[in-house]
Design a binder for these strands. Structure first.
Lengths: 122, 122
DNA sequence: CCGGATCCCGTATGATACTG
DNA sequence: CAGTATCATACGGGATCCGG
């Protein structure tokens, strides 16, 4: 097992904890994943792709991702307005790590869910 | 970029989303990380290792991790009681993926925090 | 010493209506 | 179309007390 030390991992202000915390909200990973499917998407396309996200949370999530440099937002001064979202290079470099987590989850989900049910029977 | 499809990723009941959501709460990853540092730890050792976790949240986090088969809990019927926690094979197999995320965060945190500040000035 | 039970608060999230 | 504004709510998480 890799036991690489993380400096200050136990400091509540640890930037790594901070970054991981911001990526692990309810929607961020799913929005990033969705944007990997196409090079750029409009706001309404994202809403359509993620049926159960509210308009507000999509806006909030996109703004946070933009602040952290994961998403590039492009406004076209047209009527009606058009706004396109695309992943940045930073997000592209992050995605393989997320994807390896997803693949692990896919391989293990059946056993995990099975374990949970066992506990409930006890 | 890897565009491997996730079946039902947009189903709110998607097990992968469920599992990722449960792993991405405030403490789970840090507790798993802490348990990689030693083969087994007592409750109070974990509290000591993670100074800012409350007793309740450590209990809740450990129970959830146990339910999902990430942690093995061993109670020794002694007085005073002794309870030891250790990672399961499942958690050991998960850790490299978490660690790759941590390493990515370590490499990118300075730039991300710098970007955030830029946005605030605007 | 371990950790369960209870109470409480702030933030994250959601529903709805409105606007440039 | 792409949001804002407002109001409502659920849940995570902390403080404290209690019990085996």
């Amino acid at each position: 097992m890799d036991r690489t030390m993380i400096l200050d991992a136990y400091d509540p202000q640890c930037p790594i904890r901070n970054i991981l915390a911001r990526m692990s909200d309810k929607w961020s990973l799913l929005v990033i994943y969705t944007l990997t499917q196409t090079d750029k998407m409009r706001f309404r396309d994202l809403r359509h792709a993620i049926p159960d996200i509210s308009q507000k949370m999509l806006t909030v999530t996109l703004r946070t991702l933009e602040e952290d440099g994961f998403v590039k937002r492009t406004i076209y001064p047209e009527v009606p307005p058009r706004v396109e979202y695309a992943l940045t290079e930073r997000a592209v470099s992050l995605f393989p790590h997320i994807n390896s987590l997803i693949i692990w989850a896919k391989e293990n989900m059946d056993n995990i869910i099975s374990d949970r049910k066992k506990d409930k029977i006890k």
